[in-house]
């Protein structure tokens, strides 16, 4: 089982006798809030669209056809791949990946810093990390837009400090989207890594130093492998919502930097929408996320075997 600690398997066995009953509430919740909505969406993706939103209960593959192919797959002509949506997908993966990397580069030292403070001040630091997240995501994203625009405070400050001669153009670029995603999801990186580092046995670093390892070797060969589950959990928790995000790309990226989340969002907004197409795009996104998770779980299993 992926994600379980070393004792996970043993605990599962101990409770095996009473398992079905104890697990029932979890299954009910997963059923109602996870499986059912996905089934509804899967169904919608195979229905015919109605103008002004909504669907007609007539099964068709039209939505998937529209996603992948230019000329109809079922028409008379030779089918041709439609690249528009695939490119949007590819750009989304790329953007989410870079945002995840940014979160990791900033989040790991942050988590390390917090986890190595004395116990009582850790709580304060963790609290501080989460404070911005009490504000609505939309407002935070708009504030970000204000901060980074050409004549915004960030550029003003850099100009005044003499570090740059003319404003850095960030707004409506890929970088702006990555910054927005980074800011939106940083705690999801920090918290799991923090949890892993807090459990890290610092005697291992001493043992490494005792065995002639430099700080760099200790970091790359002992610390990172040992806290890896936290790092991977953090990456998944940032990557997955970044992939489907639409606020940051919409507000910070402009029209050129359209992402999959915005594409789906648009299909359900107003009269111009296309519900089956939106549902199909969402299903395709979901399958990709699942593939990533399954590959990860496979790797975990192979490592612990």
């Amino acid at each position: 089982m992926a994600g379980l600690g070393p004792t996970g398997g043993r605990a599962a066995r101990t409770y095996a006798g009473r398992g079905p009953l104890l697990i029932l509430p979890a299954w009910v919740i997963i059923g109602i809030f996870l499986v059912l909505p996905i089934l509804i969406m899967a169904t919608y993706s195979f229905l015919t669209k109605e103008f002004r939103g909504g669907v007609i209960w007539e099964p068709t593959l039209a939505a998937y056809d529209q996603f992948f192919f230019d000329r109809g797959l079922f028409g008379d002509e030779q089918p041709k791949i439609e690249w528009t949506y695939i490119l949007i997908f590819w750009r989304s993966i790329w953007q989410a990946g870079l945002a995840t990397l940014l979160c990791l580069l900033i989040g790991f030292p942050t988590a390390w810093f917090i986890a190595t403070r004395p116990a009582h001040s850790r709580t304060v630091w963790l609290f501080l990390i989460t404070v911005p997240y009490w504000v609505n995501l939309l407002i935070r994203t708009i504030s970000m837009k204000f901060l980074i625009r050409d004549n915004g405070p960030m550029n003003q400050w850099l100009l005044n400090a003499g570090l740059i001669d003319e404003p850095i153009h960030i707004i409506n670029t890929n970088l702006a989207v990555q910054l927005g995603l980074f800011y939106s999801y940083l705690p999801f990186m920090v918290l799991p890594i923090y949890a892993a580092v807090e459990r890290y046995n610092f005697a291992l670093s001493e043992a490494a130093a005792d065995l002639y390892a430099s700080r760099w070797v200790t970091l790359t060969q002992v610390i990172i492998p040992v806290v890896k589950p936290g790092i991977i959990a953090g990456c998944i928790l940032v990557f997955v919502p970044s992939l489907g995000a639409f606020l940051a790309p919409d507000l910070l990226g402009g029209a050129k930097n359209f992402m999959i989340g915005s594409l789906i969002e648009e299909q359900f907004k107003g009269a111009a929408g296309n519900w089956p197409f939106g549902a199909a795009a969402a299903m395709i996104l979901l399958s990709m996320v699942l593939i990533v998770l399954i590959v990860y779980a496979r790797n975990q299993d192979r490592e612990s075997a």
Binding site: N201, A203, L204, E206, A207, A208, A209, D210, L211, Y212, A213, S214, V222, P225, V226, K228
Partner: peptide
């Protein structure tokens, strides 16, 4: 000298074996 430059080795009380 830092610990990694000292030609002594330690057997730690809680062993501190690398778990991975």
């Amino acid at each position: 000298l830092p610990p990694n430059k000292r030609p002594v080795n330690t057997v730690f009380q809680q062993y501190a074996l690398f778990p991975h």
